[in-house]
Design a protein around this nucleic acid. Structure first.
Ligand SMILES: [Mn+2]
Ligand SMILES: [Mn+2]
Ligand SMILES: [Zn+2]
Ligand SMILES: [Zn+2]
Lengths: 145, 145
DNA sequence: CTCCAAACGATAGCGATTCTCATCGCTGTG
DNA sequence: CACAGCGATGAGAATCGCTATCGTTTGGAG
């Protein structure tokens, strides 16, 4: 099994796409993150390393990657779309959002995944994806009780 | 047990807020819907009935209602925020979104709710809310197989 | 090496949401 | 009931995330 950036770049090539700098920079940036990032963060992050990408190219790259199911869009409800690599196996996770400070943390729960699968089975949809966001107060924001 | 609009208007009064027309119109409109609606839809819906609300007032009312936990924000990933009454008991539901045509449908699943509760118990957050969005192709958009 | 379409970056445009501010109208007081 | 004070409201300006446009660059097949 190869690493996610390798798989991603390979899939892009297989889809007949050229190997441009912008797409590669987005893939590399996302591969180095532990959780989802906004397009702005990605843009800034790449520029911070000296990369010269336009915002439009970042959005275009994300579009393509989402289309190929290599990247997943995460919506936590603040009006800003975030993106992270699609992990089928070991890194698959969902998100905890602190309503107070806005912190986003990943979490995993095998039993929940099973329940989601079963729930999906009961519905008439051909399911592609599922998103779960849990909201509340994080350790830091909880009034010390 | 009283109806949702009554509870909502009561909570607003209890919070020391005056009884203005805009907030009431938003509560009434939402109470009549089966699922989430966007701010635009709410605005248009109220005006269609002859109401004279500004968009700003709709957004302000929604803000307040969300703050008081009377209304829940639903984010299905199309860049438009939707809102629906917070139902604890019988009307609580989550959403199915068709990636193709964008249709949004509510669904309920008791086993899933139990799994969510248990998952929440395992995490260090003080949970307030949870959102689940399932995505895929709906009956109409699925290539007839 | 040449050539062309894909990919790019800058920037204008767009739609959703928020901000500003002058006005309006609850609500408690006299 | 008249009035004052202040929260609520509506119109429109401003912001912001995202998309469309367009001229330029460049990967890579021949
Ligand atoms: Mn999952
Ligand atoms: Mn639920
Ligand atoms: Zn994540
Ligand atoms: Zn709904």
């Amino acid at each position: 099994m190869s690493t996610w950036p390798d798989t991603a770049l390979e899939s892009l090539r297989a889809a007949g796409l050229r190997r441009g700098g912008a797409r590669r920079a987005v893939v590399d940036y996302l591969a180095a993150q532990a959780c989802c990032r906004s397009a702005q963060e990605i843009h800034d992050g790449i520029r911070g390393r000296g990369g010269e990408v336009g915002v439009a190219s970042v959005y275009r790259a994300l579009d393509t990657l989402v289309e190929l199911d290599l990247v997943q869009r995460v919506d936590i409800g603040d009006g800003v779309a975030r993106f992270e690599p699609t992990h089928e196996g070991t890194h698959h996770h969902h998100h905890l959002v602190c309503d107070d400070c806005g912190k986003v943390e990943p979490f995993t729960d095998a039993a929940l995944e099973r329940a989601l699968e079963r729930a999906a089975g009961r519905l008439g949809y051909e399911l592609e994806q599922h998103d779960v966001v849990l909201r509340g107060a994080c350790d830091g924001c909880r009034p010390g009780d």
